[in-house]
Design a protein around this nucleic acid. Structure first.
Lengths: 219, 219
DNA sequence: CATGAAGATGAGAGGTTCCTCAAGTTCATA
DNA sequence: TATGAACTTGAGGAACCTCTCATCTTCATG
């Protein structure tokens, strides 16, 4: 059962193997050098021709999505584990640390997280599930008096965005520094000593608009 | 007195005029579309040939530096104004808001700030001056009990890096949202309710290393 | 206003990446 | 094992960008 979006006929065995080789090669290269590496190089490392790459993945986005398909599941797992934590604050904070760790460990995923993951219809379900868990996580921590009352779920984008940049700048020189950045942000999320915020949070529809990033076709 | 690095002979009048035209054109394009715009386009908007651009600015970095030369002075001004503020916390916070406003208003400067401004020897002096003012600003706010004792000057990079990403993502959809991000970070900087940090701050020599970013020539 | 040094010009060489497609190869099935 | 559909291949066209340099133009100076 290949995780294809459409219910197309199954791939031939050699095509399936090449698909796996390409994903492995892309996973490595993306992790090392980011998701903008030349696709020719991905094909070379996979040991197939560039034509085959385009046969399997008509666009770069399709390849990226295939490479990082498991990440959303991983995040969903973290969210559920966080909800199982008896300490609301600890669960909340741990969840964010875990997500950021995914960013810190893989340059490609860090970029994708910051720019906005391909929201394929296939992932729609998981996505909603994660959103719901995050919401519960925050609400529970608010009611426990741990998280400030004016924090919105959309504000967690600041964590991903901010840590993305810190990771990118310091991955070589100080690979653990992002933990300090996150800890400072977390202290800002606490109810204790919270000061009024100057702006409302991103509305859900806006947060969707913030994702695409890609410049419209130049005109 | 052209602000040239070397004590070269002064430029001829037409060359000086073209230099100004190029800087103006680049300032506009950088602000709109970032510092990676095609240099041909900068030349076109300036109304000169690409060759002239290369005559005046042998590298893109040279052009970027000329375009943003004034920004460091502006920041130095903010730092001094902040020190003049009788309220240590207010001075500290206001300084950061002002710097971030520079990022929010100019996509090119936002990129440059996040990637690390060209540290030309010419700016060395101003740079040190700003650093010193920032240090005083923090120390004063610490002694007033407003800023947490374990905050280091190097941690302010988190502000620039984090806000850079938020600005980039939301400049179109929610152009004021960065203020919320900054406010949350600022609450994390307060002495009130500070929790121990998991990592030491970036050492000064490391913060220099975090700047360059540019991949080494690929070999 | 003549002269030469400084400057401007833009076609084009050279590099990179994306993406296609006509031709050849392999797999699955009868 | 023969056949056709599925798949692979890689040369090369197209789009972009950077940077150079031989040639022409303009400015400053006596």
């Amino acid at each position: 059962m290949p995780s294809s979006t459409e219910a197309s006929r199954p791939l031939r065995s050699d095509a399936l193997r090449n698909r796996a080789l390409l994903i492995d090669a892309a996973r490595e290269l993306f992790a090392e050098r980011g998701v903008d590496v030349a696709l020719e190089e991905v094909a070379r490392r996979a040991g197939v021709s560039i034509g085959t790459l385009y046969n399997r993945f008509p666009t770069r986005a399709a390849l990226i999505e295939a490479v990082f398909a498991d990440r959303l599941e991983k995040i969903a797992g973290y969210a559920l584990a966080a909800l199982a934590d008896p300490d609301p604050w600890h669960g909340f904070a741990d969840y964010l640390v875990n997500v950021c760790e995914l960013q810190a460990v893989d340059r490609g995923f860090n970029e994708v997280a910051a720019r906005g993951l391909a929201d394929s219809p296939a992932n729609q379900g998981l996505r909603r599930q994660v959103g719901e868990a995050m919401n519960q996580l925050i609400e529970r921590a608010k009611q426990a008096g741990a998280v400030r009352a004016d924090l919105a779920m959309e504000d967690l984008a600041f964590v991903v965005w901010g840590i993305a940049q810190t990771v990118e700048r310091t991955a070589n020189s100080a690979p653990r520094l992002w933990r300090r950045h996150l800890a400072l942000l977390l202290d800002g999320f606490r109810a204790e000593g919270a000061h009024p915020l100057p702006e409302p949070p991103l509305r859900p529809d806006q947060s969707h608009a913030a994702v695409p990033e890609c410049d419209p076709p130049t005109k």
